[in-house]
Amino acid sequence: MKKINFIFWSISFLLCTSCMVDEQCRQNRFVAMKIDFFHVVANKTKDTIKTTTLSLDSVSARGLKFDNQSSKFIYIDSVLSYKFPSTNVDLPLNKFSTISKYEVKFNTTIDTLTILHTNSDYYLSLECGCLKVHSIDTVLTTNHFIDSVKITTHTVNNTNAENIRLYK
């Protein structure tokens, strides 16, 4: 009898819990542009180019926002620092503007990255809400540390895919 009671209550509990609606958001809501670092080595004798992943000791980035009052770019308070050694960085793009400008410090050298992009809404669910996803149009850089950049995936979303290749 005890055994039957146990089975009955176990099944009832399983049925009740399986019918409950999960109200937790279990999806990744972080949207950022992923930049991977590469080093290009040219072999002049063989006339070939070899690309290898570049690992940096220290990388940090700070956003520059256009201030309408002063008509100047001003620093965002928060500095984004990345763990040692860094082979890539994730830069969040501006959700309500089509220009995102970053000052990126590669070890001790500073370069400015300007990303021109479009923004659109991406609805996930009632529990998770809505995201802003971006489509990169153009990337402009200064060339103190950076040699060149290449857009590999234009869409910036929550999939953590590589968007830009940065060559030194």
Partner: peptide, 20 residues
């Protein structure tokens, strides 16, 4: 209809509310 969908930009600042 879906209403009061808030998107906040934690890094660059700003917030917007959307209704569908």
């Amino acid at each position: 209809n879906v209403s009061n969908v808030i998107i906040t930009d934690n890094y660059w600042g700003g917030s917007e509310t959307f209704n569908y």
